[in-house]
Amino acid sequence: MSDPTTPPPVPAGFAPLRIPGWEDFDPARARGGGLRGHWRGFTTAVRIGWATEANWTDPLLFFIYSVAKPVSAALILVVMLEVIGGATSRQYRSFVVVGSALWAMVFSGIAGLAWSILEDRERYRMIKYVYVSPADFLVVMTGRAVARVAVGAMGTIITLAVGVVLLGVPFDPFRVDWPLLAVVTVLGMVAIVSVGIVLGAVVMQTRQEAWQYPEAVAGALFLVSGAVFPLAVLPFAAQVVGLLTPLAWWIEGSRRALLPDSVSSIGGEGSAWLDLTGTVAPSTPEIVVALLVTGAAGTLAAGLAFRSSERRAKDRGLLDQTTGS
């Protein structure tokens, strides 16, 4: 009979990680990985998000997200212009096509984090396991959102290509301000993801029908971002809201980089920008600074909102609830 004081042999696969000098417990494992750990969690989440959301191997899904949705959105606006006809409408065609193409990234980014939370909570029921892992929950969810933004970027590029080839958008690669485009793209992605983080904070508190919320939020931001019409058309108060929105500056900067001769969505006759600054349109440095400032403020607010929502969700046991109706 075996000696009850002798522990049974441990199967090979269960052998603990042993650090010399710390045979029993390694406190380093509880300290966390710091910035490196966050980066690892972030990149892993981006890879997971890309693997699950990018649809290279599924032509139907690629078509839906990267072609049909963004191109249809642009075509709606183009036809609206054609319906009205006239010089004004022709002048605005490039304006709306570029704005609509860029909006594909906005929708993906806004929906990305929110849908990731809803999916993990309602469908895969994995959220509690993600939450209790050492990786920071916000960092992981942000990584998933970034993957979706990248998917949206494919839609943007395709829509722009359709615009150039079929809809007469005048694109000259030698006239594109590539440094500006690079800068505003990076800052813009941060701004987009921060909006997504705010929405993620909201859906942590709400129930399954929140699947539709990203669409609603993207649609509402459409109004004040200058994506498809100059802000000057709006009442003054709405224009001011637009000026405080990083998305408006991102679209202005991207449009200026891609189409240097394009009409400004921020400035122009009757615009709040003109009233406030006395200049017809913002300069390129002004655009970058405004994007940086509004983006930073938005990112800070988003982080605070998410942490607050996380605390509330933890307090009320919402993190692993299922809420269908």
Binding site: R207, Q321, T322, T323, G324, S325
Partner: peptide, 8 residues
């Protein structure tokens, strides 16, 4: 079983 509607 985890079926049903949590809100009810």
């Amino acid at each position: 079983e985890q079926s049903g509607y949590g809100i009810l």
